[in-house]
């Protein structure tokens, strides 16, 4: 069971309290009714599914009930960081030891 840092509760909480809700930073088009089929396909169906850095949404559904974003390494399963929904994408970098850290964060 993973421990996940909830940016609202400001502490690590057991995975059982959370639900993964898919890829993050996919914004619903403001003029969705007017977009083309291709744009809709890109928005609704296409996901990145990367090996390595992934941006995903989680909900602390059995805790504070807030949605938030997380950066995770799909190879090691480790969370790099979590941040509140609506906040800009957090850039990360992989160190020589293979471990991902937030770009520019003090070690």
């Amino acid at each position: 069971m993973l421990l996940i840092h909830c940016p609202y509760c400001q502490e690590e909480r057991p995975e059982l309290e959370f639900r993964n809700t898919g890829e993050a930073h996919i914004e619903r088009p403001k003029d969705i009714a007017g977009i083309s089929d291709e744009e809709f396909e890109k928005f609704f169906f296409i996901r990145t599914n990367p090996k390595g850095v992934t941006y995903e949404r989680w909900r602390h559904i059995h805790g504070c009930a807030r949605f938030f974003n997380a950066v995770r390494d799909t190879v090691s399963d480790r969370f790099v960081t979590t941040y509140k929904a609506g906040e800009p994408r957090v850039e990360v970098e992989r160190g020589d030891d293979g471990i991902l850290t937030v770009k520019g964060a003090a070690q």
Binding site: E17, G63, A65
Partner: peptide
């Protein structure tokens, strides 16, 4: 105080 899970319920 916290909302959490106990067994299979919230």
């Amino acid at each position: 105080a916290t909302r959490t899970v106990m067994g299979k319920i919230e």
